[in-house]
């Protein structure tokens, strides 16, 4: 069991190295580098060379990757090419808003997902097909459509909520929760449908296992069968689906934040992509990837802990 935990940690670490290299490599593809961006194309070749030396850009890519990685580990993500401010500070400013938004979305999505997965998985054969198709259909609709639909219903028709979610300059985003409602729902609905589709299959597989059928045949009450013979086997798949959902949600936050004008990390990411502000893009992407990898590692660890065959092996 301890071995499984170590393996999960090592795997996450390895994935982190791979992902950070991927992110770094992607931004390396840019034809212009930081020196050109800063000088805005007005400098001479000599000035550029000097600046590159000052920024360490003349070193080979792998050395720059390593020093960037080392900086990240110390919480130093470099300085923005556009604002000249430390990237870490810019990220820290936006982090609470995004955490609040994704937290609210998860709070809606997870119960909805679990409920629909249970319904899909335990439905009679006649209903399982249509229910699963419904989940697939809902998950197929682009996120932006959900956002637009919610605005039309709750803002244009009912007039309950503002169509855009501008945050107050000061204070916590929770002080006035109204701007949070539509973005959270727009994030939660497709995520719940996607997760329900994945988890519904796991539920259906579990309830068909022989020991569950036997428990039903022995006349145990439904709640007892569910709690003792079905739920323990769903822990690991649920954790995995939750980790995936949380990751997808974090990425989708970029779209939803842009759509509603909500000043979070996603909005920072997208606007930095527009200005080719690579240090910011790198930092936000790596942060999101770390969150996803941590979630996956926790899910793997949970899976190892609830593995019925783990006990007795060292």
């Amino acid at each position: 069991m301890a071995r499984a935990l170590v393996v999960a940690m090592l795997r996450a670490l390895l994935l982190f190295v791979a992902v950070s290299a991927l992110v770094f490599g992607a931004t390396e593809l840019l034809p212009s580098d930081a020196a050109e961006s800063r000088t805005g194309g007005r400098a001479t070749a000599e000035q550029l060379a000097q600046m590159r030396e000052g920024l360490g850009l003349d070193r080979p890519a792998w050395r720059r990757y390593l020093s960037w990685l080392a900086g990240l580990c110390h919480g130093d993500a470099g300085t923005s090419l556009v604002t000249d401010r430390p990237v870490a500070a810019m990220v820290a400013e936006r982090l609470p808003a995004t955490l609040t938004l994704t937290g609210c979305a998860l709070a809606v999505a997870v119960p909805l997902m679990l409920l629909s997965a249970w319904l899909v998985g335990t439905a009679s054969p006649r209903w399982r097909g249509p229910l699963a198709a419904l989940a697939t259909g809902v998950a197929a609709v682009p996120q932006v459509v959900f956002a637009a639909g919610l605005v039309v219903v709750f803002s244009a028709v009912l007039g309950w909520l503002p169509p855009v979610s501008l945050l107050p300059a000061e204070g916590s985003p929770l002080a006035d929760p109204r701007p949070l409602v539509l973005p959270s729902l727009a994030l939660a609905a497709p995520a719940a449908a996607f997760g329900a589709g994945l988890l519904g299959g796991a539920v259906a597989d579990t309830v068909r296992r022989p020991h569950v059928r036997d428990a039903v045949a022995r006349g145990l009450p439904r709640h007892r069968v569910a709690a003792r013979h079905v739920a323990p086997f769903l822990l690991a798949p649920t954790a995995r689906v939750l980790a995936l959902t949380a990751g997808a949600l974090l990425a989708a936050a970029a779209v939803v934040e842009m759509m509603f004008g909500y000043a979070g990390l996603g909005e920072l990411l997208v606007s930095s992509i527009g200005t080719r502000d690579t240090p910011v893009v790198q930092a936000v992407a790596v942060l999101a990837a770390v969150a996803v990898l941590a979630g996956t590692a926790v899910a793997d660890a949970l899976g190892a802990l609830t593995d019925p065959y783990a006990r007795g092996r060292s």
Binding site: L15, V19, L22, A26, L29, A252, V292
Partner: peptide, 19 residues
């Protein structure tokens, strides 16, 4: 599995910097 563990939207956004 590595690619599946990462949200594809995020990857696409990062790639959009250069491509």
């Amino acid at each position: 599995d590595l690619l599946l563990a990462l949200p594809f939207l995020l990857l696409a956004l990062v790639l959009a910097v250069a491509l």
